[in-house]
């Protein structure tokens, strides 16, 4: 696809703005900057409270890296599906676009399934948000990330329906593009969470002397 074609597709929307940038896209980027602060605050809360649990289960007892690696991989691939969907939508290949959007929905749902399994499994091991500070920070942070993914899935499902009906087309591909930005952002938040919560603290042991602190 040539460069001019891209511009023409957006012509309607951008012709009235002072910078020539799309309003919706600009707002989505601003929102993402805002969400950076949201997740930033939660991740720092997690890091500050890391290793300060007074009672178990501790991260090393519950976190399961192989399973989370699979779910991380699935979320990464959903980003790939997302970007392909956008590409085909701009190329006016309706069926492929719809299929890839559905792929995003499917992969996102599988990811949520993993998260549901994980939460359930942790609860069986005796870790709930009320158990200790690790449980508190872990569940609220990953839970809110899951909430973001869920919203993304619903949004994608709506767009898939639109693409199927032919109302989402190359000339309003911006709607899919901003949804895609949101989706990729959720993905990069997970990249950080996977590193910070899972890989870095998966071997965290009880803090030294914690038995004494309780008394």
């Amino acid at each position: 696809m040539s460069e001019t074609a891209v511009i023409n597709n957006h012509q309607d929307e951008i012709e009235n703005t002072s910078t020539g940038l799309s309003n919706k896209k600009l707002m989505m980027w601003l929102f993402l900057a805002s969400d950076v602060m949201f997740f930033g605050a939660f991740i720092s809360t997690y890091l500050i409270y890391r290793g300060k649990s007074l009672v178990g289960p501790y991260p090393s007892e519950v976190l399961d890296i192989p399973i989370t690696t699979v779910s991380t991989f699935i979320l990464l691939m959903s980003s790939l599906a997302m970007v392909l969907a956008l590409h085909y939508l701009k190329e006016n290949e309706k069926n492929k676009a719809t299929l890839w959007i559905l792929g995003v929905v499917l992969l996102g749902t599988i990811f949520m399934g993993f998260q549901f399994y994980e939460f359930n499994h942790f609860a069986h091991l005796g870790l709930t948000p009320r158990t200790n500070i690790f449980g508190t920070t872990f569940f609220i942070l990953t839970g809110l990330h899951g909430g973001h993914v869920t919203i993304g899935i619903l949004w994608m499902a709506f767009l898939a329906y639109g693409s199927h009906k032919g109302t989402l087309r190359s000339d309003n591909a911006i709607d899919l593009e901003i949804a895609g930005l949101y989706w990729h952002f959720v993905d990069i938040v997970w990249i950080i969470i996977f590193t910070v919560i899972y890989l870095i603290s998966a071997n965290d042991m009880p803090p030294a002397g914690s038995e004494l602190l309780i008394h």
């Binding site: 460069e3 001019t4 511009i7 957006h10 951008i14 002072s18 910078t19 020539g20 940038l21």
Partner: peptide, 8 residues
């Protein structure tokens, strides 16, 4: 200043 029209 933001560029006036930079979309292209």
């Amino acid at each position: 200043n933001l560029p006036k029209n930079m979309s292209g």
